[in-house]
Simulated assay, not measured.
Amino acid sequence: MAGTYHKDESNTVNRYKHQATYDVDTIHAIVNSTPVLHVSFVPDTSVPVPVVLPMIGQIGHYPSDSESHCYLHGYVSSRLMNLAASPPGIPLCVAATKVDGFVLTLTPNTHNYNYRSAILHGHGTVVSSDEEKLWAMQLVTNSVVPERYENSRVPPDNAEMQSTQILKMRIESASGKVREGVPEDERKDMKRDDVLDSVWTGVIPVYEKLGEPVGGPYNRVKEVPEHVRRFVDGENARRWTYAVEASRKPAPVKRVKKQNQVE
C-alpha cells in the first residue's frame, strides 16, 4: 500500500523531525513486526485518566474494505470491548516500538538508540461479522507465527467465537520515527583528544532472538513442524541482519530549514 499519512495536529512530529516518517508502508511494517502493541484510551471522559493496555494486533486490509485497519484481539467482556460496542466507537492511540541498537557516544547526553516507532490515532469499533472476525483471527494468529492458523485445530468452535472479540480501528492519522546509524557527537567533544582517546564509542546491535522450540508436555509430534522451523530460522536471520546493518549506516542527517520555510 503506497502513500503517506496526511500531517495534522495529532501526528506531526516536532522533535527530531529528520527522523520522522509518514510513509504508510513503513509505519504498517513497524506495527506488524511488534509482538505487543500498547493501546491507550480514556474509559470515562468525566474522569480524564488514560488507560494503557498491552494487546496483540495487526494491520490488515479486509477484502471488502477500501482501506487497511488495525485489528486488536481481546476478550468479549473486557472494558475496552464494551466501550467500543456503541457507535461511533472509542478514540484510540496505538503505539509500537522496536529497539535495534544501543548507541554509545562520548558523553551521556548524546547516547541514543537505533529504533523504529509508530503511533496510530483513530476510532475502534467491534467487528460484528463472523466472516470478518474469522479473517481477523487468522490475520492475528499468523502474525505471531506465519501459517500457524492453518496448522492448528480450526475453525474456532462456537465457545471460542463467543469469548473472543476483535476491535477494528480505523487509522485516521499516523506517524513514525526511525533512527539508524553510527554514533554522533558534538563538535566540542570531537575536538578533544583526551576524550577521544579514553571513551569507547560505537553501537551494540539489539535484536530479539527466537530460541530452539521446546515441545509441550502433551505434544505427540516428534519433529518441529517445518513452518515453525522456517519461521525461527528466517526471523532470527532477518532481525540480526537489520540490527547489524543499522549499526553501520551513517548517522541521521538533520534537514536544514530553508529560509521562509513553513513547517
Rank of each mutant, 00 (worst) to 15 (best):
S33I: 02
D157L: 12
V221S: 12
G101K: 05
D193A: 12
A251H: 11
N236L: 13
K254H: 08
V195K: 09
Q19N: 13
L134K: 10
Y75Q: 06
K254M: 12
E147D: 02
P225R: 00
S175N: 11
I119S: 00
S68P: 08
G101R: 04
T45L: 13
G101M: 04
R79T: 10
V253W: 08
V224K: 05
V232L: 09
S128Q: 14
I204A: 03
T34W: 06
V203C: 06
S198L: 06
Y242L: 15
Q259T: 12
L120H: 00
T141N: 01
V199Q: 11
V206F: 10
Q165E: 10
S77H: 10
V199M: 01
H18F: 13
T12V: 07
N82E: 11
D194Y: 10
S33L: 07
V99P: 02
V140Q: 00
P213V: 12
A174Y: 00
V244D: 12
V206P: 09
E263K: 05
V224I: 13
Y149K: 02
S175F: 04
Q138V: 10
T125E: 15
V126T: 12
E180I: 00
E208I: 11
G216C: 03
E245Q: 14
P217I: 01
S198V: 10
S163A: 15
E245A: 07
V47S: 14
R187Q: 15
S64Y: 01
A95G: 00
S175I: 07
I27Q: 07
H123Y: 12
Y62A: 15
N142P: 05
Y207E: 13
E180K: 05
R179H: 09
L210G: 06
K222I: 09
N114R: 02
H61D: 09
Y62Q: 06
S64G: 04
D8W: 07
S175Q: 05
V99H: 10
G202T: 05
G60H: 06
P146K: 09
V214M: 08
K258V: 10
Q165G: 15
D185F: 04
T12M: 04
T141S: 12
P225M: 00
E9W: 03
S77D: 14
